[in-house]
């Protein structure tokens, strides 16, 4: 089953999807409009870019700190949370146990990100990975 569909089966998940390095390519399931999904995709891409770079910088100062390659990130809001693992994202309610269930599914299904996360994201849309990393 597609990961987004599996995530949507968890009560409390509002939307889930997949985004590529370029923020304009995405697929999703759940309660978002197409425009909201596009914005979520751009947001996830920028955030992943951010956190990935921070992990790289941090690990260059503190080698073997275990923070790279980056696996994902979670932003916990007041009532909602957003999390991303690899190139999948999920929007969920802050109900007891939902985040743990979502992260369990995402980590199990997406698997360990062993390479540079940006290259993994790029490989989803094909093309010359190294060339396009701007």
């Amino acid at each position: 089953m597609h990961i987004a569909k599996q995530l949507m089966a968890i009560p409390g998940v509002i939307a889930a999807g997949e985004y590529a390095y370029r923020g304009d390519r995405y697929t999703y399931e759940g309660g978002l409009t197409d425009e909201q999904a596009r914005m979520a995709s751009i947001l996830c891409r920028a955030n992943t870019l951010n956190v990935s770079m921070q992990a790289e910088m941090f690990s260059s100062f503190a080698e073997h700190c275990g923070c790279r390659p980056l696996q994902g990130w979670i932003v916990r809001g007041k009532q909602l949370s957003v999390c991303a693992v690899g190139n999948f994202f999920c929007l969920l309610e802050n109900r007891q146990g939902v985040l743990n269930d979502v992260m369990t599914v995402m980590r199990a299904k997406v698997g360990d990100i062993s390479d540079n996360v940006m290259q993994v994201m790029y490989s989803k849309i094909g093309g010359d990975v190294t060339e396009q990393l701007v």
């Binding site: 914005m39 751009i42 920028a46 955030n47 951010n50 770079m53 921070q54 790289e56 701007v134």
Partner: peptide, 16 residues
């Protein structure tokens, strides 16, 4: 380059 990508990502978000 790391910092440039990060600033670019933040700027994209700000612009959005």
């Amino acid at each position: 380059q790391w910092y440039r990508r990060m600033v670019a990502g933040n700027t994209d978000l700000f612009s959005l």
